[in-house]
Design a protein around this nucleic acid. Structure first.
Length: 275
DNA sequence: CCTTCTACCTGTCAGC
DNA sequence: TGCTGACAGGTAGAAG
């Protein structure tokens, strides 16, 4: 379930296995994921040490002592498995059909990337590589101080697209996906159908709704990171996501959650309290 | 530049 | 029990 909170959780799980550790062995079980692996992918990783493992939006970035960066994206269905090197599984205990990448680390842990739908990808970025897509094009981190009503309104000014589509755009804010956009809009009592431009006043200053929305985005993500970043992982119930026809959670609202399709993707919201 | 559409891939589930 | 179609949390590139 990889949106920002889930990617952050993967990062924290990977930290002890990867940071400060060397790639002892790298195995690719196929030539590509969504896109081909970088040239000489294995050779460029082998023997290198992971200095830091950071997250930017939904991307994981492993900075190597060679100056290169290993960029990893989980796509829709990607996940890592971490286990002591040499661990054996009973033949039917685990579905290993979609184990595409294996990192044997000097920490004694083996990190395996599994991705059935194969929308994930891994790329090695050379030092100083200034690509204009992907990581380089990302908007502000939603949990950082750089993400404010002011910056959001400035980006929204003049945009005719819906609030829902606007927030899914990673150049606007990095890390929200289909679930947390619905969740944040519900907490903010803002309709996903509203035009993005309504977040700004005529003078380009933030409308009060921008303030409410920024607060809601931060609250929803903080809560999800908290509940998902611990080992006592228990799926929190969503406010609206995948809850069509159920009663709305907003206090004193007697509406029901509705599902609609925007830009080909499901949106869940309550038309009674989201305006 | 902005917006919308499409492609990429496998798995699951509802309905027949 | 098959079969079919719809749907699933992602990004990026092309077209208008």
């Amino acid at each position: 379930m990889p949106e920002l909170p889930e990617v952050e959780r993967e990062r924290r799980l990977l930290l002890p296995a990867m940071t400060g550790a060397r790639f002892v062995r790298v195995r690719l079980n196929r030539p590509d994921l969504r896109v081909p692996f970088s040239e000489r992918f294995i050779e460029r990783l082998r023997g290198r040490t992971v200095e830091t493992l950071a997250r930017r939006g939904k991307y994981l970035l492993a900075a190597l002592d060679s100056g290169e960066t290993l960029v990893m994206h989980l796509g829709m269905s990607g996940a890592f498995r971490i286990e002591p090197t040499g661990t054996r599984h009973a033949a039917d205990a685990l579905d290993t059909r979609h184990d595409h990448v294996v990192f044997v680390m000097s920490s004694g842990q083996t990190v395996t990337f599994n991705d059935p739908r194969r929308f994930g990808f891994m790329q090695l970025l050379a030092a100083g590589d200034a690509s204009t897509t992907g990581v380089a094009a990302l908007g502000p981190e939603p949990l950082s101080r750089a993400f404010t009503p002011h910056t959001l309104a400035a980006t929204a000014a003049g945009r005719t697209t819906s609030l829902k589509s606007f927030l899914l755009d990673q150049k606007v804010v990095a890390g929200l996906g289909n679930i947390y956009v619905s969740e944040a809009l519900h907490l903010a009592n803002l309709s996903p159908l509203r035009a993005a431009a309504t977040l700004a006043t005529d003078t380009g200053r933030p409308h009060v709704s921008a303030r409410t929305l920024v607060r809601a985005i931060k609250a929803v993500l903080r809560k999800a990171v908290g509940s998902r970043g611990t080992s006592a992982y228990r799926q929190a119930r969503f406010r609206v996501y995948d809850r069509a026809d159920e009663p709305c959670d907003t206090p004193r609202c007697n509406g029901h959650v509705q599902r609609l399709v925007q830009a080909g993707r499901s949106t869940f919201y309550c038309s009674t309290c989201q305006r």
